[in-house]
Design a binder for these strands. Sequence first.
RNA 1: GGGCGAGUGGCGGAACUGGUAUACGCGCACGACUCAAAAUCGUGUUCCUUACGGAGUGAGGGUUCGAUUCCCUCCUCGCCCACCA
Length: 824
Amino acid sequence: MQRYNPKDIEPKWQAKWETDKIYQASEDTSRPKKYVLEYFPYPSGAAMHVGHVRNYTIGDVIARFNRMHGFNVLHPMGWDAFGLPAENYAIKNKVSPRLAIDENTARFKRQLIQMGFGYDWSREIDSTDPKYYKWTQWFFLMLFNKGLAYQREALVNWDPVDKTVLANEQVIDGRAERSGALVEKKSLKQWFFKITDYADRLLGDLDNLDWSESIKSMQRNWIGRSEGMLFTAPIKDSQLQIQTFSAHFEAFSADTFVVIAPDHPFLKELLKGTEGEKHVLDFAAQMVKKRDAQGYSDEENVEGIFTGRYIEDPVGNGDLPIWVASYALAHYGTGIVKCSAHDERDFKFAKKYNITLKPVLFPSDEKEAEKVRNLEYCYTDMRNGILSEPADFAGQTAGENREAIIKYLEDHQLATPQISYKMRDWLISRQRYWGAPIPIIHCPLDGAVPVPDDQLPVVLPDVESYEPSGDGRSPLANVPEFVNTTCPKCGGPAERETDTMDGFACSSWYFLRFADPHNDELPFARDKADFWLPVDDYIGGAEHAIMHLLYARFWTKVMYDEKLINFEEPFTTLRNQGMILAPNGLKMSKSKNNTIEPDEIIEQGYGADSIRIMELFIGPWNQTANWSVEGMGGAFRFLQRIWTLTQEHQDAKEQAGGDQSHEQAILKAAHYTIRSVTKDLEQLGFNTAIATLMEYVNNLYKLKSQDHFADGEAWNFAITSLLQLVAPFAPHIAEELWSKTGHTGSVHTSEWPAYDEALLIEETLTVVIQVNGKLRGEINVSRDADEATVVASAKADQKAARYLENQTIRKTVYVPNKLVNFVI
RNA sequence: GGGCGAGUGGCGGAACUGGUAUACGCGCACGACUCAAAAUCGUGUUCCUUACGGAGUGAGGGUUCGAUUCCCUCCUCGCCCACCA
């Protein structure tokens, strides 16, 4: 018998599967469809490591398991290839990013194939292919025409030395990664998608998704809906008025001052004509600068300055001073807040600047209430706190009166209900070369004009230099042939938009393109999308928990509204695999030089199948695990034992003459394993499914070593089932042994084995004897024995009897087929 | 500060709706094969105790005949978000 050598068999089957097209999907309506998808990878310079491999292994096992269950499985793969690393590579080597991407995708694809992943490569897509981004641009225009894409000024990271806009990941501790210069904020006109219009739907529809609670709660958190009240107040000695938002408005009678964000657009107008106008503006500008450099985290150093202005508070709190405060956020609520003794930040700020505070909310404990009255600490319990003002609610808890307080404020015309979100619109402009060009033409007469459909795609031109333009625009601005064009509306001279789109735009619809990847007339044909979508199982890392998943959900809802598709949520179930860390528990990264690549393990002779087993056996699929080098040996030994077991069977086949009970034992082991593995896989219990298979193999070795086979039928069934059960995990060895044991066709298109429940019914069962809940013995009883018989034989059990001697049994607990517990 | 999740042998982990804690694997020890080693096969492996027996799932308490599992209090770790009014 040949030794198990993965190098001999794995490449052979990979080629054969591709030739036989066994993973190619078509719109065959005779079987139910199943769309299994892993996030399409970014083929960066770094090769794929065993952490990535886990993601694809999970998807592949799910796809194969479903295929063997008779599903028509779509399991595609493609490339999310726009982005910074390719552009950096291009600048450094003065070559087209295209070149870098082509090299990287080729390597990535080879790595995926050598892992034995069953993708339908006829559907391969590449987001940087003009045939693909034509439709990304088409979707941009759809959003634009619906009023969901708009331009406004926004801040970017500006490197004053290299004269370029930096991505967030190019800024490290406030300095440019490359030049080391202190990064400045610069205001540029940029494109946004109005995702906030969809906030409520994005939030509400989460409830019906089969996603992990943690991802859902991250999305809820990110959207950050809060219901509150909007107050309006006139500014004293002025025609102006302000609005403030409060989600914790119950203690509105406590408001004693107002804060406004230092970068609030209204600040200038507010200060106009005040004595300290210039001084306050300068101070505010400084606060903004400090905050941009250090972030918000410096909680101890809140600072502020009095504006010289007051509001006349309509709710009856008198004239309240307006302060500029570093902790106020211009972009949340209205950017202006009425403040009181019942907010930690307000409290701290007021203490620092000796601003009057007036508590109106108190704990029920009088001693504690006295402390709050004396401003010894900040009391914020809006549920249990007892109000002293306004008179209508005096003596009652804030929490129980929230609704009544809303009504009170509305009836007295003091405030109106308002909903506020943390989520902001999606900034999609990138001042970068390597992205899909934004298909807009700027005309001096007609403004921003969409590129007509028949002129799509706006092709990214080849350029000589990928260096930044120096004025904050992308390198495309240096290409006159690209920039200068005519206005589609008036025909006059006009300029193309030079910003490109955020890569997340490309990945917001790719799952639809897989349904119809080669369509030149449409992004996808309606019937094909209807057939395959939504994605049934989406498998990916938690790094996509917020942005990608939210953006893709947003685009899907827009398409639904446009009647392009018939579903509102793109991913029915979402599975987030756990990360694989280096053996020392650190994150794998190229820079730390601690990555482990599948190539080297395959080279060492373990093979792809062993890696796949290891990826899943290492622990629950959704939990983080440290890679174990020693563990690879265990995975390999398991497969090797299958190899040997299966072929010794061939040698031993001639031997005859067994007994029926032995045959029964083999069948029982097989059916038990089929049931157990099937149930585990239905619940994604990959690690326990593999454990069961290991136990099964161990058992078959023992049964075999008694070296008597009956006519071999039971044994044949046992081995055939073993190969099928192991096929999703270790596709190569399963296929090789499948053919070696005389099967035709592929094990991967064979039908998943069925089990016979009747065979698994045990005639005798072990029943445990407990005394006061402690294990004291066990007895074997027949399955249909009645309670009295079982209890009697339990009492008679020698071991247990010792504990019952001279004792009164106060109670006997009997659990059928499980245990007897004597309470003494 | 807010949200989510997790604490079980030397290690990764298992235990279905409360019913024999530690399946499976790694590691380790011993044995078989071998001149020897590797590979392979087999046996053992929670801790304390010579034994009888006892303890034991992060800590403490509770419910129960019985708790890794349910409830309360606390501790530790991981991830995500975070001056979000």
